[in-house]
Design a protein around this nucleic acid. Structure first.
Length: 779
DNA sequence: CACGTCACTGTTTTT
DNA sequence: CAGTGACGTG
């Protein structure tokens, strides 16, 4: 342990060693925040705390995974995997599944994503016959979400200042919509993202015995990125820690950028008031960036009023100033960036993965994508439309959701007539009205149409009966078949595969690929869990749980091929790159025109730029374009006001260099094109199957007369010889079917239950049940 | 009821 | 420029 502590500086070490009470660690950008958290957890484990008694809450799944990985290296995998670590949402979703009955849900509840939430709000607005121009589904949904993040339930909402605001804004009925929304979620046995927090809070607040149970379980609670927690999250942490005070929160108020999601910077500013005797630690030495980058970032953030004072400094080399490169157009902006990438690669031998292009909005990725394709620069776009938000995937998932929880209204509506089976809007409307009348889910009405007095033509009724039978058939197989087998049948029997594979529409080819990809991901999921000895958790509902909270950012992609990273600044939080391009520094983009109203909003935008700049280790370039293609037309923009906020002596402006001719007209649209599948990733994390970078859509001239879904891959039990007598030993190098090359660290158990711990080069360390693992020994 | 066409509208960031 | 909703026809 001593040698571990020696790897920390004095400030970090003090933060790690203090375990006597509430603790706030203000960690400047690049100051080793994650390091402190991981070492602190390792320290707690060394001092005898059991891993399952430690709760560590992170902001992204990725952060949790990486931290687990790092702790595993410090203290060993066995104990690292037992840590309670994950995002607020995923950890509490797991708890809520266990405790669901106490709050009037059942354990198989669906998690509504923001699209589901929006669509539900939309139908409620319609049902209430409100004008959808005044009551915009989007903004009403946002308002509801905001209320939930403030733990304002419908009952209190009506009498709160929120309701009075609504009246002023001429939207007096938002409260009623909210009320109905909550009712409908309950009927559907569904929770939205915010409910995962709200319901956890309600559970802990209303059931002292349950709260005690978790207070006893989580003897030490650590929270990462505390500046981005909202009121609900703060209160939950408080409910879990207020007695023992074993709580350590880490964050940087200067990097608080999620207020649109309810994050409240006051949580971190007021932490010491919340917890008596909370001790403050500051980490101010930046190990990431050159001195000039740190200074430039400091000069920018100094313009903000609300902050905890700190002096972030770097002892790295001085480095170069930031460079601002104005461009004539968004196209030229992309060319400039690509040129610089090539130049720096040449001059410094940098890898493509050493570069990141960061932008304010996802839509800005386009011009860069096009340019990088032209220049054959490999890239990967993070975020944006994630794999399973694609239509064809959402459809399949909707089927799964209905099978796991038929009360799920949003999913049911989505699939009841897809593929078309003669149950149209009119019919669905009648079912919905009947359901509404009796306060039950659509499925209940479908199950017992006569009981609820559903009036339909005989022929329509037959179709509904058929649909019902279909779903019930699958439901019976829910417990006996694994996700892959059942999922495959659902795709075949629902008619989805017929719909997608019978079409001659060339665009459907990428839908087919996506479907294959998805199915492959399910197979991997099932196999992975088997290999990890979690045979009991391979059902369709387990798969759904995994997938519901996964983000595009979570996919590991193939790390072997280095790629330039393209992402929003929000998505870049916590990451670092040798060279960073912060693009689109223009008024009307950055700051976002939506955020120029109040000082508070504007300060958050400024923090956002601060986050962007502090991602850079060596080079930081800023770009802005004079003309930009937006809403289908060319628009004119002035440089961002934030540029003036950076100390001019730390910023070099590189002349209006016109880069190359304005050649090439409008890009790649003519040439056969690429599938939308693009540089985006396929599946997330452990579901991981890797998709190669832009893959041209196969120009298949002769269509297979009967194209169809790949056949069900039956489990092929490994030949018995592969199990016992091969004698896998520590130090062996194996090549695993999915995880690639890895070294065997440990072998335990015998016969059937032989388990190996393998450190993979690219996939991290895994424990594999050899009975199921698919690998060959290569050394 | 299904499907095609046409006009409209909205665009920040995400667990 | 997309993605969505409304409308008309088969």
């Amino acid at each position: 342990m001593e040698n571990i502590l020696n790897e920390l500086n004095a400030g970090q070490r003090a933060a790690v060693e203090y375990c006597n009470g509430p603790q706030l660690v203000i960690a400047g950008a690049g100051s080793g925040k994650t390091r402190v958290l991981t070492y602190k957890i390792a320290y707690l484990l060394e001092r005898g705390l059991a891993p399952w008694n430690i709760l560590a809450l992170t902001f992204t799944n990725k952060a949790a995974r990486e931290m687990k990985e790092r702790i595993g290296r410090l203290v060993g995998q066995d104990s690292a995997v037992r840590l309670q670590m994950g995002t607020f949402h995923s950890v509490f979703a797991r708890i809520l599944r266990v405790e669901a009955e106490h709050i009037g849900f059942s354990g198989n509840f669906t998690i509504y994503d923001q699209a589901d939430a929006r669509s539900l709000v939309k139908s409620i607005i319609k049902e209430m016959q409100l004008d959808d121009k005044t009551y915009k589904a989007n903004s009403v949904a946002d308002r509801i979400s905001m209320a939930k993040n403030h733990l304002l339930l419908p009952a209190q909402y009506q009498t709160s200042s929120w309701a009075r605001d609504d009246v002023q804004r001429k939207l007096p009925l938002v409260g009623q919509i909210y009320n109905r929304y909550v009712e409908r979620c309950r009927q559907a046995n569904a929770m939205d993202f915010d409910d995962l927090l709200v319901q956890t809070f309600v559970l802990l607040r209303n059931h002292e015995d349950i709260r005690q149970k978790y207070v006893n379980r989580f003897q030490y609670v650590l929270v990462d990125e505390y500046q981005d927690t909202n009121y609900a999250q703060q209160e939950i942490v408080l409910l879990l820690t207020r007695e023992h005070g074993h709580v350590c929160v880490v964050g940087d108020d200067a990097q608080s950028i999620y207020s649109f999601r309810g994050a409240n910077i006051d949580n971190i500013l007021n932490f010491q008031k919340m917890y008596d005797g909370a001790k403050l630690f500051k980490l101010e030495q930046n190990y990431r960036s050159t001195q000039l980058i740190v200074k430039a970032a400091n000069s920018l953030i100094r313009k903000n009023e609300r902050q905890i004072h700190k002096d972030v400094f770097s002892e790295n080399e001085q480095g170069e100033r930031l460079t601002l490169k104005p461009a004539y157009s968004d196209k030229e902006e992309a060319m400039i960036v690509c040129n610089d990438i090539r130049r720096i690669r040449r001059q410094e031998g940098a890898a493509y993965s050493d570069f990141a292009i960061l932008y304010r909005t996802n839509a800005q990725s386009r011009s860069f994508e096009e340019q990088m394709r032209k220049d054959s620069i490999p890239y990967r776009i993070y975020g944006g439309l994630s794999f399973y938000q694609r239509k064809e995937i959402k459809d399949v998932i909707a089927y799964f959701r209905v099978v796991a929880n038929p009360d799920d209204e949003e999913a049911l509506r989505r699939i009841i007539n897809y593929p078309t089976r003669g149950i149209g809007d009119t019919t669905v409307g009648k079912i919905a009205a009947t359901a509404q009348l009796h306060g039950v889910s659509l499925w209940k009405v479908i199950q017992q149409p006569i009981v609820f007095g559903l009036k339909l033509a005989g022929s329509t009724m037959t179709k509904i009966e058929a649909f019902k039978a279909l779903v019930e058939g699958w439901r019976q197989r829910l417990d006996s078949e694994d996700a892959y087998v059942l999922g495959h049948s659902i795709i075949m029997e629902s008619g989805i595969s017929k719909d997608i594979y019978s079409s001659k529409n060339p665009e459907d080819l990428s839908r087919q690929e996506n479907l294959e990809e998805f199915l492959g991901g399910m197979q991997d999921f099932v196999e992975s869990r088997r290999e990890e000895g979690r045979e009991q958790e391979t059902a369709l509902s387990d798969f759904l749980q995994e997938v519901a909270l996964l983000t595009d950012l979570d996919s590991d992609d193939d790390k072997d091929q280095p790629k330039v990273a393209l992402m929003t600044i929000h998505a870049a939080k916590g990451l670092e790159f040798p060279t960073v391009f912060v693009v689109g520094l223009e008024e009307n983009i950055f700051p976002s025109p939506m955020s120029t109203g109040s000082m508070r909003d504007l300060e958050e935008e400024r923090r956002l730029l601060y986050v962007a700049i502090t991602r850079a280790e060596k080079h930081c370039f800023l770009t802005c374009a004079q003309n930009r293609f937006r809403y289908g037309r060319m628009e004119c923009d002035t440089p961002s006001r934030f540029i003036k906020d950076i100390d001019p002596s730390l910023l070099r402006v590189e002349g209006n260099g016109t880069v190359g001719g304005r050649s090439g007209a409008s890009g790649l649209s003519g040439l056969g094109g690429y599938s939308g599948f693009g540089g985006r990733s396929g599946f997330g994390g452990n579901l991981g199957r890797n998709v190669q970078n832009p893959r041209p859509v196969a120009t298949q001239f002769v269509a297979d007369p009967k194209p169809r879904l790949m056949p069900l891959r039956r489990e092929t039990p490994l030949p018995q010889s592969a199990i016992g007598d091969i004698g896998l030993k520590e130090g062996n190098v194996i090549e695993h079917q999915r995880f690639g090359i890895g070294t065997v660290v440990k072998v335990e158990g015998s016969g059937e239950n032989t388990k190996a711990t393998v450190a993979f080069k690219n996939a991290g360390t895994k424990q594999l049940l050899l009975k199921f693992a698919k690998y060959t020994i290569v050394g």
